[in-house]
Amino acid sequence: MANSNVALRAYRDGLHLIIRPHLSITEVEEAIQEEISRMNQPLGGASVQIDLKGPTLKPEEMAYLKSKLQETYNLKVRGIDTVDEQVPPPIAAAPTTHTLPQRTVPQQPRDTDPSRIIPYTIRSGQIEDFPQGSLVIYGDVNSGGEVRAGGDIVVLGALRGNAHAGLNNRPSAVIIAMELVPVQLQIGSFINRGPMNQKPRGYPEIARVGVEDVIIIEKFVKF
């Protein structure tokens, strides 16, 4: 899965590099390396705005990061923006409902989950519920149908209905479909409407909870 410590996003005013708080400089470096290698496009010569979410790096680390971005990736830093959201340090307080689990919370490993295979299409009015683990559907989930799983949901067809992954408040769960055109998606406690009047894109997509605590959908390449 794509790491969620840093995220490279294209906004209207250009590229933004979003960095989560409370990370060491080595963690940030690794995360940037991973995020950039995940992009299949050359970024050379682009300028980037760094968005810091809360207290993160010391000034000398910041300067080091700027030169590193310039030298290694040929990325010019056009500004640094600190959005101080008053996020409490992970040990001092429990995470609020709207923050991702911190690194101190161990992620449940996927391979210990049981999974259930559904060898047919889920039609309107049918619900497939599997809180014990992940669901794999050899068919479609049609509009009016619903799939709910404690772990991940994989649809080897079109997802046109509702899907709720990570039932037991597990925001690390993902939803993958060959055609992702849902009515509504839920991952853990996060909820999002599907794209309106979206034509199928012709490639598989993955939905997961992104850095900014919203469900994002992107092209599924590999895990």
């Binding site: 039609r123 309107s124 009015g125 049918q126 049609n142 509009s143 009016g144 149908g145």
Partner: peptide, 8 residues
């Protein structure tokens, strides 16, 4: 959608 329900 209703036809889909009926087919099920």
């Amino acid at each position: 959608r209703d036809a889909d329900r009926i087919i099920g």
